[in-house]
Amino acid sequence: MDWSLIFTQALGAAVGLNAILFALAAMGLNIHFGYTGLLNFGQVGFIAVGAYGLAISVSTFGLSAWVGLLVGMSLGVILALVLGIPTLRLRADYLAIVTIAASEIIRFTLGSVAFRDISGGSSGLQQFAGEIRAVNPFPPGNYAIGPLTYTANQLFITIVGWSIVALFAFSTYSTMRSPWGRVLKSIREAEDAATSLGKSVYGFKLQSLVYGGLAAALGGIIVAIGVDSVSPQNYMTPITFFAYLALILGGTARVFGPILGSMIFWMLLSLTDTILRQAIGQGYIPSWLMTSTQVGQVRFMMVGLGLMLLMIFRPQGILGDRREMELDA
């Protein structure tokens, strides 16, 4: 088996666009769920409005991509307010129900025939990020970084993406060590206690929802620029749950937990995929047991099994603190 290929691909996946997207989405969920205790099951909706905000602004309304960028981010904020204002005074499960429903509504609306002139229907929108790609300082050509090879454009977007991840991580680090973060954590632990000490729990929850939603919208924008296309089937509900998975894998309420979790998640998917394919190709796995068309499903089973083992033997995730978990109320 070609181990160098296997590891190169795994490394590529660990730092690729998908890892950036999931890192940002999971970091947002970390703010919501890990620090504030909010159950947002519609994180993919935030990703979608970010990506489509950019795409529609440029493709449909002919605005500058830079304006589109702002539109995408604003839509993330607006979505958080629209979902949060009516639900955050209610019990926690209402937010969960409303967010998961909203993310589906967004996907169906964007893909609907009725709005094909605006959002491009099921085929989505393409070629709207040229203006942003044009500022790429790297001259065209291929760049080898270690074992990985990037085009100028890929290199640019990967660097920008990870810079945004780093910025958001720094922001999380700062806020979670500040009195603001302390209030979020107190809401997670006991809402009534925070209220009894004069904190506007509702106001802080809303801020948390906006903050984490913005991270996901940014993730959506990065990927949209990277592939220069958006399409409704890229924003399915499982994405939210994979982001949760990355978060829990890395460790909740840890600044680097979601980033590490996302990288490992994509690395594992790549590893299992290439190893299985090569093993089948070279006859290590007989065809009566498994064929290469089944690899896609089997790798998810294997990753799922791995995660179950992780939850059994290390429920706090990779970076989590077992002692903190045992204090769980």
């Binding site: 009195p179 973060g181 302390r182 209030v183 954590k185 107190s186 004069g198």
Partner: peptide, 26 residues
């Protein structure tokens, strides 16, 4: 607040904290 230290529990009680504003937190 179980997962906060005793000191963090106490600090939470203070009112009018500048650091409880999102931008100032940075």
């Amino acid at each position: 607040l179980s997962k906060l230290t005793v000191m963090e529990n106490m600090r939470l009680g203070a009112t009018g904290q500048i650091g409880e504003r999102f931008l100032a937190a940075h």
